[in-house]
Write a protein that binds this DNA or RNA. Structure first.
Length: 298
DNA sequence: TTCCGACAGTGGGGTCGCAAT
DNA sequence: ATTGCGACCCCACTATCGGAA
């Protein structure tokens, strides 16, 4: 299963535990309860672990927005630790004592991980893996959907661990949603996009019929599609925003506006707490829908 | 000759810390 | 005290280039 959190390498030694982010910054200080739990469960063993730090919501599904409240806090208060619980999900072991396991197969490393019995049932857990020979990918994706997870990661059982490399031996399948959105404006672009636009400002109608900003999209375009969209938008420019509710401040500062006549097909991961699209990408312009019938994504 | 992987460049939401206002 | 902005986190995606197939 793919968990929506922060990747973390745990270096466990008799002298102490340290946690490291993807780009090798020391994030130990941000997660004292995880360090405490790892200290107890590793019991002085020297280990190098790979896993994901996650902040489960009330349903137990990892919530990245919750985790963000902890990510940048160097020394969290007990109240914050109580309020935003963080767990460490271990999915790989890269070293035991003096032995480096990079060259061992994933199958071997998982067997080693199971032998270490690191799961304390609370802070540190070793989530189960499934074999695609026993369970179909469709079944696993359904489990991921039902559990509120990001998707699945398929790892080749014979693959070695390749530090710093996005090897094809690990393939993620991310669950994504689609929606339609009304184009209400654009923000200026930089560099190669200076002549067209940076991103499109998107909106949808609330149940009350108010046109509200649901975020922006700045990827998914080709150079040619940027040019043709810019040309189309130039035909329907207007001085004032067509939005009924004020957009986020950075958008309001920089955007230029158009009549709400174009509908975009958008793919995204989820809706953020502020009602904005997270990880949006542009799929195309829809001509079979009118702006009036575009409601908020559910 | 074609294809693939890595990298650079552009864009999104969100949080915190710090400097400017 | 408030605001703006960069640094990190999570990313999606296109364009390009060199080497592998």
């Amino acid at each position: 299963m793919k968990w929506d959190g922060v990747r973390a390498i745990a270096h466990c030694t008799p002298a102490g535990i340290s946690l490291w982010s993807r780009n090798l910054s020391d994030i130990t200080g941000s997660y004292p309860e995880v360090v405490t739990a790892l200290t107890e469960i590793t019991d002085g063993r020297t280990l190098l672990l790979d896993g994901e730090l996650v902040a489960p919501d009330d349903r137990g599904a990892p919530s990245f927005s919750r985790l963000q409240q902890r990510m940048h806090v160097q020394r969290p208060t007990p109240a914050l630790i109580e309020q935003v619980r963080v767990d460490y999900l271990v999915f790989d072991v890269l070293g035991v004592d003096e032995e480096v396991l990079f060259e061992d197969s994933y199958r071997t490393r998982r067997a080693e991980l199971a032998d270490l019995t690191l799961d304390d049932g609370v802070r540190v857990r070793v989530p189960p893996m499934w074999s695609l020979t026993d369970t179909s990918a469709e079944e696993l994706l359904r489990v991921a959907t039902d559990s509120g997870l990001e998707g699945i990661v398929c790892k080749h059982g014979d693959s070695i661990y390749e530090p710093g490399r996005r090897s094809s031996a690990w393939t993620k399948v991310v669950l994504r949603l689609t929606t339609e959105a009304v184009i209400v404006g654009a923000v200026p672009g930089n560099g190669a996009n200076a002549a067209t636009f940076g991103g499109l400002v998107l909106a949808a109608h609330t149940p009350e019929g108010r046109l509200r900003c649901i975020g922006g999209v700045g990827t998914g375009f080709t150079a040619a599609s940027r040019r043709s969209i810019r040309a189309a938008l130039d035909q329907v420019r207007r001085e004032t925003t067509p939005l009924d509710d004020p957009p986020p401040a950075p958008v309001a500062r920089t955007a230029w506006w158009v009549e709400p006549v174009f509908v975009a097909d958008i793919e995204y991961r989820e809706i953020s707490g502020d009602g904005l699209l997270r990880h949006p990408s542009f799929r195309g312009i829809r001509t079979d829908k009118t702006p009036e019938e575009i409601g908020l994504p559910t």
